[in-house]
């Protein structure tokens, strides 16, 4: 249980998203272009992370189906930012598998003021060798 809470906190911290603001309207899932590809949908990511029910998400292919198009972030009436939650779960999944290609000490040289944290997280997953 404690571990579960820890992972939830980690995901919330990485994403910077405010899952507790969600009012369960489902607009994120209504707008999602990859909806039919996903086992768990954007609104479920938000709800399950809020509940601390992260394990199922980590094991699901759904984390790789999100296009990171941010349509849900753009349209969420409550500013919840579901895509950032999914991105954070995806990162967590990759870390769990020990597939963190970029070493933490390589990050500082890539940093500059203009770089959004989100981009860095994506870079960690996509571009390292």
């Amino acid at each position: 249980m404690e571990n579960k809470t820890g992972m939830k906190e980690q995901i919330l911290r990485m994403s910077g998203a405010a899952v507790q603001k969600c009012m369960r309207c489902g607009k994120c899932s209504g707008t999602c272009p990859s909806y039919d590809e996903m086992e768990y949908h954007p609104h479920e990511f938000v709800y399950m992370v809020e509940k601390g029910d992260v394990e199922k998400l980590l094991k699901s292919e759904s984390v790789y189906k999100c296009l990171t198009c941010f349509a849900c972030v753009e349209r969420c009436p409550r500013g919840v930012e579901p895509a950032k939650v999914i991105e954070a779960v995806r990162l967590e999944a990759i870390r769990e598998q020990g597939r963190n290609h970029l070493k933490p000490d390589q990050i500082p040289e890539l940093l500059d003021e203009e770089t959004p944290g989100q981009l860095l997280m994506m870079a960690l997953r996509k571009y390292a060798k």
């Binding site: 309207c25 489902g26 607009k27 994120c28 899932s29 209504g30 349509a71 849900c72 349209r75």
Partner: peptide, 9 residues
């Protein structure tokens, strides 16, 4: 038809 959910687009 009442549908619980929001229109995305």
């Amino acid at each position: 038809h009442y549908i619980k959910g929001m229109v995305g687009k």
